[in-house]
Amino acid sequence: MSEKTAKIKVFRGDEKGGEYKEYDVPLFEGMVVLDAIHHIQATADNTLAVRWNCKAGKCGSCGGEINGKPRLMCMTRMDTLPLDKPITVEPMKTFPVIKDLVCDVSWNFEINKKIPPFKPKAPLADGTWRFSQEDADRVQEFRKCIECFLCQNVCHVLRNHKKEEFAGPRFLVRLASLEMHPLDVEDRLSLIKEAFHIGLCNITKCCTEVCPEHITITDNAIIPLKERVVSRFYDPIAKFWQKLFAKNDVTK
């Protein structure tokens, strides 16, 4: 059987720098980029470092840049890529490289810790709550996030401008999931403006383009949060209105 092969160019190195190494990998049906990396790992070089867990797009471990595009390696099929040129596989470039395709994403976990936790309103007498699927729908979209950090990686505020004070799209999504939660009563709006710097996002939507869970990050999470910030901080009419009808106050 004459085996078809593909050429694949992998970044090998660490925080000090590195180089691209080319490998030949045999192709098989339905093969994804992660299979190719695993093949190299098992045969050519046991030390090639990569993160993965589920190999089904569920855990968000295997983010990288394939032919320059931020993607999950386990969900990128080889047959969707042009095979005439070598396929480049690189780590996410926004975070410091630890080794090869693995980078240090701990900054994200630090940001997450700063988000005030969920605080539910008082439950019914039986200790539970009622809310409808319509209420659930909106936040469930945000809760699909698998924390692959591809959006953080592609966001130019972090990638090019290195604004470490900016929470980044992943955590604006998380903030949205809390702020729009039908049961939550915590108020994070000032933090969203002052501590998480939502104003640094210029809604250029790269986060939405790369999200493997197809979360409409910009339109459904960030822009609605920006609008809430406007109501609180930039809109005298809304303020007046809220005073009048304190009950319907969006800002709780």
Binding site: P96, V97, S106, W107, F109, E110, N160, K162, E164
Partner: peptide, 12 residues
């Protein structure tokens, strides 16, 4: 605190 990568690592 952990940081973001410097821009010098890859071509920019």
């Amino acid at each position: 605190m952990a940081r973001l990568a410097p821009n010098t690592m890859f071509k920019s």
